[in-house]
Every structure is written in structure tokens, then in C-alpha cells.
Amino acid sequence: MHKMITVQDAVYSYSDDEHLVLKNITFDVERGEWVSIVGHNGSGKSTMAKAIDGLLKLTSGAIEIDGTALAEDTVWKIREKIGFVFQNPDNQFVGATVADDVAFGLENRHVSHDEMVAKVDEALHLVHMEAFADREPAGLSGGQKQRVALAGVIAMRPEIVILDEATSMLDPEGRQEIMQLMRELKQTYDFTVLTITHDIDETAFADRILLIDDGELVAAGTPEQVLTNGTDLVDRGLELPYAERLLNQLNLLHIDVPQQYMTNDQVVKWLCQKLNSSK
């Protein structure tokens, strides 16, 4: 398999502080994989994401993107491969209008005007924001701004898309929209996706989940492996998926529940079978 992101022994601390934000984190992500990094606020998950894009420099350790080691002379080349959507919708909107903002990254890469117009139109179409091209950010909702940010990323055709808590400031509707959109886009372009979140529901589309707690990588695996009671998600400031919580509750009420991980649909199916078989 082709490794898209390799992180080896990542350590990070602020220069004036002994406290380690990242403690020897090692993992890799394969091309086309969707990986979610989860952890409570302040666990270091966002720091990890920013280090991957060279937005902050590790104290020690090594990062490789698509076979190239991240270093001062490769960082701009590497950033061309990575599209990054940040947490605050307002603070990453550079352009004075929606179209200008989508064009910002293309302008940085000296894309010619005609090509740029075509790419901006296409990207806005993909995020369903073409009707807003000339609008100013002040009139948009948080979810719409994040869609514009996503369009800015898509226009660049990146290999990797990183969503760094990109939905945490949105209302539930905006949150669903962005995740659904990301899923559609991934199906079209087959990016490698890295999402950073504390919301377990947002790991729904992930192939693999990395759990970070106080700068340490404490669990890694498929959703089935990580999102079960065994990984004490609750003690680590997070929450179990709804289905898992319901099974736990039923277990407390002395109902025998299956030991394996189940999604909502599977729980519904299992309960209805149980109800009807006991007739």
C-alpha cells in the first residue's frame, strides 16, 4: 500500500514550556483512506494536524507526505498536496466575496485568469454555492462559509484534505451538511481524508480512528475496535456512539446484548428480531 502520511515519534512543546503537547506519536495513513483523530479539547489533536501541514514545527520527530520528508525546503511543495479547513468559519475567509475567497489559493499558485474562473465556478458548483459567488461573507451562515472553505480546497485538487474541527462551531444542520458533502467529494476525487474532532458522530465515515489523550496516541483501529466500551472513551472526555450507549443501558437492565460493535441500524434490526422471535 502507498503511504500518504507517515508520522514518526512526533513530539511538540511550546518553546517556553516543559509540558509536552504531543508525546511520541507514530502513525501512518494510506492513500485514499479516511482517518479520524479524536480526543477532548486540548488533547493535542489539532496540534498534530497543523504539524502535518508544516504550520508548526515539531520539537522532534519526522513527518513524510507522499514520500517527501517535511522540511523547510519542501514545506511549500507539501502544502500544495494538502487542503486544510480550519475551525472558525470567519477567520479563514480571506476574500471579499465568495468567488474571491475560492480563488485565493489559485492566485497564490499563479494560475492563469481563465483557468481560475473555470476552477472557481466548478468548485462552487460542487459545494452547491454557485448562487452565492458574488456574495460577501457577512451575509452567510457558518455552514455556508465552511462550504466556501471546502470549495477553496477542492479548487486546488489536493491529495489530502484535513478538516480540523471544521464543524465544531456550526449548528447541527450545518454539521451534517459538511460531513455529507465531504463524503460525496471523497467519492468523486478519492482524496485521503483526515478529520479532527471530538464528536464521535463525525467518525461515521472513517475507515480508521486514532484516539489521542493528553498528547498520547492511546488507541488506533477500525471504528469497531475503538468505539466500544473497552476503550474507555468516556473517561477520556468523549462519548460512546448512541447505539453503544443504548446497548450498555440495556445491559444494565439485565438484557443480554451482543458483545460486538453495532451501528444504529444493526441495533434496530437486532431489537426488532428479538421482539418478534419472542412472540
Binding site: 501541514d53 494538502i82 480550519f86 477567520n91 480571506v94 492566485e107 499563479h110 494560475v111 485568469h113
Partner: peptide, 20 residues
Amino acid sequence: DLATAMEARGYSGGEGRSKY
């Protein structure tokens, strides 16, 4: 935040940028 976002989007100074 804005400076970080601009950097992530490849902004490294005004020189030679094309115009939308």
C-alpha cells in the same frame, strides 16, 4: 488564525500572484 489559514493556502507574499 487568518495568517495561518493564508499560509496553509500557499500565500507567501504578493510577488507574482495571479489575479482573479
